[in-house]
């Protein structure tokens, strides 16, 4: 099978230069990551840790 556009060995169908590339997918993924670790941190500290007494005081 060969696709209609000409492809290189790596399957590249178009060249994207530095100025025309906005890593918007990366931003989306990493914002999700940010929300997850922020939330997990709060849960771990305030629920798991502070709720796990006795604690060293």
């Amino acid at each position: 099978m060969s696709s209609e556009t000409e492809t290189t060995e790596d399957g590249i169908v178009r060249e994207i230069g530095h100025d025309e590339f906005d890593p918007v997918g990366t931003l989306a993924l990493i914002l999700i990551y940010f929300v997850i670790i922020g939330g997990l941190w709060a849960f771990m500290y305030f629920v798991e840790f502070l709720g796990n007494g006795p604690t060293v005081v």
């Binding site: 399957g11 169908v13 994207i16 890593p23 997918g25 990366t26």
Partner: peptide, 11 residues
């Protein structure tokens, strides 16, 4: 991740 996204968009 941005670098591989660049690859994905070129593909």
């Amino acid at each position: 991740v941005a670098s591989i996204e660049h690859g994905a968009r070129q593909r």
